[in-house]
Each structure stands twice: as structure tokens, then as C-alpha cells.
Simulated scan of single mutants.
Amino acid sequence: MSGESTGYDAARIEVLEGREAVRKRPGMWVGSIGERGLHQLVFEVVGRAVNQVLPGRGGSVDVTLTPDGGVRVTDDGPGGPFEDTGDTDGHQGLEALLTSFYAGSEPSGRHVAAVGQFGVGLFVANALSSRLTAEVRWEGVRRVQEYARGVAVTPPSAVGPATGSGTTIAFWPDTEIFETTRCSFAVLAERFRQVAFLNRGLGISLTDERPAGEARAVLFRFPDGVRDFVAALDAETGAALHPDVIGFEREDPRMAGTMEVALLWSGSREERMRSFVNSRATPQGGTHVDGFRDGVAAAVMAYARERGLLAADPDPGADRIGEGLTAVVSVKLDRPEFLGATRGLLGNTDVRVCVGKAVREHLGNWFEEQPGRAAVVVDRIVRGIHQD
């Protein structure tokens, strides 16, 4: 069939760029135009705020759902200029982040917490909002700029003195784009809680001002990181076999990153495993989870053999090792390699070896230091193996 017969040729191809492309196909950037996409929009803005405070420059992010359908995100990070500074390090000002796809130098790798699924940044949030106001507190001055559907309404302007430093982004998701603009307090709170667990000491608050006379607020900050995460997961199931969470944190240059692992065995038969890469959930697991299982199995079997608890040399099986196990495995990598478009499965081969060795060493030491508690855990696993 020819182009003449179909009435279609190159002149009919529509090329969309920038803001128009985002508004024309919003699902490509935030996943959907329903509630899921709306939450991703919030996560993009909160993600930028979290990464402003993570490197020890601040410490907290405050998210507020306002009565008029807006979302306000405030951080106490370093702030910065609206305009490009011309620095040789390539840092762009906030105005550039709001009006173009970012191509400059930002923190990356293990130093970035992936709060949202897509990582598309402030530009997409601005384009998909009917209105957005950006405020920067920097060098003692408050400066503000307003946008409408991604287009600047006013230039950045000084509006008064600033106390402290940081950034506030207030935005109103566009009703012309989204099927709903009402965020779920529960969905946002669960993800913020998760991010706070995975980044020890980070504070994230969520305030809902929408219910008339019934404002509610939560604050998440966990000084013990993933240890607190495991304790919270176990509290949902019942009493543990031992009261203390086993946990450690280690950096390993071979995998160009760090690992933070915590676990305990509970009295239930259910396994509760959570895994993350750079604060992004990996529901399909990957090499960090494989390494964790390798390390746990090796430590358990070595302890059992040393004490003559095994009559033979059986394969312990992942199901037996994981029975009653509650664990969180979080790795932060400079160069994570995911298998598949959804980024739910980690593929870095070095991670398996590094995590496996670290878990075996740390758990083995814990077995030696806590023989009474170790006996309860290992005997239960060994009995299960012999019954098979």
C-alpha cells in the first residue's frame, strides 16, 4: 500500500518535544493517568527533596496535602539559585530542572534514593500540573517563581529574607490530565515510611489538611534503619524466636557499593523478605537476594556440622532456611544493573558474592556469640531438613 493511497506521508508525522510531549502522553512518564500515576508524580517531587537532604546537608522532608487539592513538599537542604551558575561542575539551577529534561551533574549511584519508579524529575511534574510554585531559601533570601502547566508565569523574584535554607515545591496536579487528583494518604505514608527505613536518620513527615477539622500527620524517622524495618515487619506476625534483630552494614569496593542487612527468625512458618536497590523495591529479587540466601545457608550448615547436628550432608533447601525468616536486604550501588524494564530484578553478578560472604561471616559470628539463641534457630532448621 503506497503513501499516496493512504494519504499519509512524512509531512503528516507529528513531532512532539518537551512539555508538549509529556502532556500528550503522560502515561509514558508517570505510568498512568489514574491514581497510580498521580502518586508517581508526588514521588518524583519528594524524591528530589529527599536527595537534597541525604548527603548530610539537612535531614528532613515535609509533605502536605492541602485542602485545595495541592501538594506542598519542603526540604531543609542547601537550597540554591534559580538560574544556572555557570559552574564548571555542570550544576543547573532550579529553573532549568523545572523547564527541561535534566542533563547536568546530579548525585548518582549509591548516593541517590529512588523514591519514584521512573526518575523523570521536576520537569514532568511541572508539565503535568495546572499550577506550580517554587520557592528557594538560599544565602539569606527567599525567591519564588510560578508556573502554569509547565510555562513560567513570572520570573524568579526575591520576596523577603530567608530563615535557614531549603526548597519548597507546591503543585496542583492537572485535572485535564489525571482521572483523579485526590492522593491516598495511606499509599503515600507507606512509601515514605519505607524510604525512611532504608535511609537511616532521614525524617519524612506527611500532613493531610484536607479533612475539615480532622487534619492528620505522621512522622517517619528510624535511627536503626533496616533493623527497625525488620522489627516492624516481625511485629505484624507475632513473637520472634529471639528478641534481638541481627543486622550489619558493610561497604565492599568489589561491588562498588554498600549493603545493609537485617534479619530474625520468628515463630511463624512464613518467610517475609524485602529487598531494595538504591531504595527502590525489587519484588523479583536478584543477585542481592541470592547472595543473602547463600550466606544464611552457609552459616547455618557450617554451625550445624561443627556441632555434629547433621547425620549426612543434605542440601538445606531455600524453603527450609527461609521458614520463619524475616529479613530486609538493601544495597546501594554506583552502577546497578537491572534485568527487565520494570527494574524489579537486580543482575550485578559481583553483588551475590559480596553479600553472600558478608552474611555468612556476620551470621556465623552471631551464632558463636549467642550459642543459646543459635541452637534454637539451627535446631529448628536441621529438624526440618531431617524430616524431609
Rank of each mutant, 00 (worst) to 15 (best):
D234N: 11
V226M: 10
V277A: 01
R269H: 13
A240V: 05
T207Y: 04
L233N: 14
F220S: 04
A212N: 06
A235V: 11
G238W: 08
G247I: 10
W265L: 05
A231Y: 10
S268L: 04
V289M: 00
P223S: 14
V277T: 02
G238P: 11
E271A: 15
G286E: 01
R227L: 08
R210I: 15
S275H: 00
S266T: 15
E271L: 08
E214G: 09
D228I: 06
V289C: 00
R216D: 09
R216A: 12
A217N: 13
E236W: 09
H288D: 01
M259Y: 05
A239G: 04
V261K: 00
H242Y: 07
L233Q: 13
E260H: 10
P283H: 01
R280Y: 08
R210D: 08
E236A: 15
E251G: 14
A256N: 12
T258E: 10
R272S: 09
L263G: 03
A215L: 07
V226L: 12
F276W: 13
V245N: 01
R280D: 10
G247A: 15
R227E: 12
M255N: 07
F229C: 01
D224F: 11
R250F: 13
L233P: 05
G285N: 00
P253F: 07
F248S: 04
G247T: 10
G285S: 03
R280A: 12
R272N: 09
A240F: 06
E249F: 12
A239N: 08
L219K: 11
F276V: 04
E236D: 14
G213N: 06
R272E: 04
E270W: 05
R221G: 07
T237F: 09
M273H: 04
D208I: 12
T287W: 02
D224G: 04
R274D: 00
P283Q: 00
F248L: 06
S279H: 12
G225H: 02
H288E: 04
R280I: 10
E251T: 14
E249G: 15
T282V: 13
I246V: 15
I246L: 10
T282P: 00
P211I: 10
D208G: 05
R274A: 01
T282M: 04
R221T: 09
G267Q: 10
L241R: 15
A262G: 03
A239P: 09
E251R: 13
G285Y: 00
R221W: 09
A231I: 08
E251Y: 12
R274P: 03
S266H: 08
R216T: 13
D208E: 11
R216K: 15
R280W: 09
F222W: 08
A212C: 05
R221D: 06
A256H: 11
G247K: 05
M273R: 01
F222G: 03
D234Y: 06
F276K: 00
A231V: 08
A231R: 10
R274S: 00
S279D: 11
T287D: 05
A235E: 14
D252C: 12
D244S: 09
A232D: 14
V226D: 00
G238T: 07
G286T: 01
S268T: 14
A281N: 01
G225E: 01
Q284T: 02
F248G: 03
A235N: 14
Q284F: 03
L264H: 02
G257Y: 02
M259L: 14
A232C: 09
D228Y: 02
D244R: 15
A212P: 08
D208A: 08
E236K: 14
E236G: 13
G286F: 03
H242K: 01
